[in-house]
Design a protein around this nucleic acid. Structure first.
Lengths: 351, 351
DNA sequence: ATGAAAGCGCTAACAC
DNA sequence: GTGTTAGCGCTTTCAT
């Protein structure tokens, strides 16, 4: 194996510029107490030699590690990747996170941790100890896992919670799921729907409750009853099938269904097909997530699109700013989702 | 900002177990010259204290960095992520790569580098200097970029080339695109097709030429002419549209078209729709990649599915083995693609 | 404003 | 088999 030694070190730069290591270090880190002309000379040497600091060495000396860990749920992420159903959550997270990180010399590194693991603290602790990241971005359902939150808070690690709206330790960033659910429900009501069913997501996700709340809210505001119209689900296709069947078996079935994610919406679409129910003529259908495939189903599904890339970009930015010691607004951040109407919605069938 | 110091270091373990640092180090790295009972005692201390080595420190001392960089083309990857067309190349790469890495205490870290950049060596060099990875996994088109290959070889960095079949520096791993193209073409010929068009991919990708070769080969073996049936493309939707139009404008148009990727196949599907050509009755259509959405088009597209997860898992394994000093077979590796027949293929229309 | 010294956590090289 | 020493590349003290 090749001896791996840094080709160009701070020492080379210092020698080349005729200054001390310290001065070079100050220039690299934009620290004060360097005369402009000195700084310029050092910069020239850096450019000439093609010097890039080793993040391992920076980390070792007690400074930043320039690493941000994005913590995703192992089970769910792997299931998504294996099923190849086009879930692009991780892609969107990387899109926002990596670009923001790159702009500041940071790297984003994806870690999979099982939120149900009995040893979750050990797993997390291991990842932290090995990587020594400057910050951690939590994604649902980790964002609401008290074991993880406590651990990070205790260790004083800077972190962000994506999909959380509560204040508390760590930056909270959410996508206004309640508002989105309310808007969608209102949209359907405006189309003339009176019985609108909701297929809920897993309780483990905070979003699930918000979506239910938004739907309830809009229904109540319109004076509509929700009794029996809430079907439990867990984001899986199978649970979507069960929920859709339950809703459509109702004595007075809904004329519109909102599914809390795309997989359950696809399941619902399948159920309607089996029953010979036309979408959107006999049943309107809306989903959450807006993964790529819902644009290709027949009909394409109207969906709530969530700005995951924006959210993860903001999360990374907050962590970087905080790490750099810049003043940061720690208030919970809400980045609105958008409703994308497509062919799966229409006025209810006239009786 | 919180002072970031390792909570438990090798020193704590050594003290706890009553041995020297070196012995602990040997145990961590599974090195010889440690009596089983000693090793056991050390392991016990490690477990009790929850010790995990800092990879920064390991790197610093000239050992492994436990990092593998996966180098993807910046422009194309970002375009895929932004367009949200369900391209799951990166997901599949992470699936295979991350799991293999994790099994050996490694991490995979995605880097985006523009293969066309004038400063590509500088970009690469910066990433290497900052991260000091133990190995690099090249993806197309980087796998065939001589600037990158030379750079890595010169620096004696262990690397793998995904999508390359030529021997040479670095491990070559490919998916038998030529064989897959041959099989698909033969499949169509067996269905009765005589005029089979091919929409080629970008020249920048080695795969493009192989797919053409496989198609040519199968056509020749069946005594069929390919004159005029090869349409250039560059993997983009727009190029697919142009290519499909050119093929279908032929005096004697093909009864089947093979597109070198899903986007161009989708474009072809659109063109057929505009022209009122029924797929598969009037035209059979096959694509390469098998991204999630092609299962949801109407009709769903038959496609060549490539084992990206397997390939990246093998690539990571090769790098890790080599880094660990284990004997490794450096021969080019071929992991076959599989053809997934779906509703878009049928016998040609009878005249 | 600049430099010198010490040390981060770990492993290579060398003793014993 | 085990321990000791030196040093990786950088930043943090603390001098000057």
């Amino acid at each position: 194996m090749a001896r791996r030694r840094q080709a160009v070190t701070i020492r080379h730069v210092a020698a080349d510029a005729g200054v001390s290591l310290q001065t070079v270090s100050r220039v690299i880190n934009n620290e004060p107490n360097v005369r402009p002309e000195m700084a310029e000379r050092v910069q020239a040497s850096i450019a000439r030699l093609g010097y890039v600091p080793s993040i391992a060495a920076q980390r070792m000396s007690g400074s930043r590690s320039y690493l941000i860990v994005a913590l995703n749920d192992r089970e769910r992420t792997l299931a998504d990747w294996r099923s190849r159903q086009g879930s692009d959550w991780v892609n969107q997270m990387l899109l926002g996170g990596m670009l923001t990180c790159a702009a500041h010399g940071y790297r984003m590194i994806v870690e999979l941790v099982d939120t149900h693991s009995a040893h979750i603290e050990r797993e997390l602790s291991g990842a932290i100890a090995a990587l020594q990241p400057d910050g951690v971005i939590l994604t649902p359902p980790h964002s609401a896992n008290p074991l993880i939150l406590d651990f990070l808070e205790k260790r004083q690690i800077v972190f962000a919670r994506i999909g959380s709206s509560a204040p508390g330790p760590g930056f909270a960033l959410s996508t206004d799921d309640e508002g989105a659910a309310r808007d969608v429900t209102r949209h359907l009501i405006d189309l003339g729907h009176r019985r609108i069913g909701l297929i809920a997501g897993s309780d483990e996700y905070e979003q699930s409750a918000w979506r239910v709340a938004g739907w309830r809210d809009a229904m109540a505001a319109a004076g509509l009853d929700t009794a029996g119209l809430l079907a439990p689900g867990d984001f899986s296709f199978a649970s979507g099938t069960r929920a859709a069947q339950a809703l459509l078996d109702l004595p007075s079935p809904p004329t519109a269904i909102i599914a809390s994610n795309d997989q359950m919406a696809l399941a619902t679409l399948d159920v309607t097909r089996e029953r010979g129910l036309a979408v959107p003529d006999a049943l309107s259908l809306v989903s959450f997530d807006d993964t790529p495939i819902v644009r290709y189903t027949h009909p394409p599904l109207a969906a709530v699109s969530q700005p995951i890339a924006d959210v993860s970009a903001r999360a990374a930015q907050l962590i970087i700013d905080r790490t750099m010691g810049r003043p940061v607004d720690g208030e919970p951040l809400v980045i609105p989702s958008t409703f994308v109407p497509r062919g799966s919605i229409a006025p209810p069938p006239s009786r």
